[in-house]
Computed example of a mutant assay.
Amino acid sequence: MYEIFVLGQLMEEDKHGYLISERLKHAVGPIRKISSGTLYPLLSRLVNNGWVSLREEEHNGSRARKIYGLTEAGRNRFKEQMASPLEFNTDAELIFHFKMSYFHHVPKDVQLACLEQYLEYLTYNLKYVTSLSQMMSTKEMEESQRFHVLRMLDHRKHVLEADIGWVRSEIKQVEQQIDR
């Protein structure tokens, strides 16, 4: 899941592992924890696959920094990852956010495909929440519990509807852009 983020970071410029780690921590937010045991094995795998290069650079007389850079194969891998379909799983929103932050590296058709896939994901979830609300309305349960469950589902519905509206607006904006 973090591969797209790392490759996207290296599309900008070469970076040392600590900087990539700090940016990843900011990108995932304050709740999700990213350990060195997640990032550095990923960087090693990317190097082993030939997608990322590694060099050491002296830093203020202390231990040498490992600097990671993107190879041509890594650029191709990044473009493949950006064009790959969004999977409907618990990480879909985060992956969408990663991809969207790197839209400036891909053509308009890839941006639109990503937005359309996310719209499909949101619509799928909205249909699920709506059907669950209908089911809970008729399910036998304590009335106070039903009330709170339906409020929770109503909240989820409103959030999804707002997200759907936002994505539709983004699609219109991208459609109006001149393709580069």
Rank of each mutant, 00 (worst) to 15 (best):
D154E: 12
R65M: 15
A27K: 10
S44F: 06
Y124H: 11
C114D: 06
S35F: 08
L132T: 01
S62G: 14
F98E: 09
E143Y: 08
N76L: 10
K66E: 15
T90Q: 01
K108F: 02
L94I: 02
S133R: 13
E13L: 11
L7I: 03
F88G: 08
F88P: 04
A83V: 00
E93Q: 08
I164H: 10
Y18T: 15
E120N: 11
L115G: 04
I178T: 09
L153M: 11
N76G: 12
R63D: 00
A73N: 15
P30K: 14
G29N: 13
G74C: 01
A73L: 15
L115E: 04
G61P: 00
Q111P: 07
E116P: 13
Y40C: 06
H155V: 07
V6Y: 01
Y40R: 05
F5C: 00
S169D: 14
N125Y: 00
E57W: 10
I178G: 11
R55H: 09
M152N: 12
Q81C: 07
S144R: 09
F78K: 08
N76K: 14
P85M: 03
I67T: 05
R63G: 02
E116W: 14
S131C: 02
K15G: 04
N89C: 07
H26I: 12
H97L: 10
S84V: 06
I178E: 15
H105Y: 07
H148F: 15
V28K: 07
R23S: 08
Q81L: 10
D14E: 14
E140R: 15
Y124M: 09
C114P: 01
L160S: 04
Y2K: 02
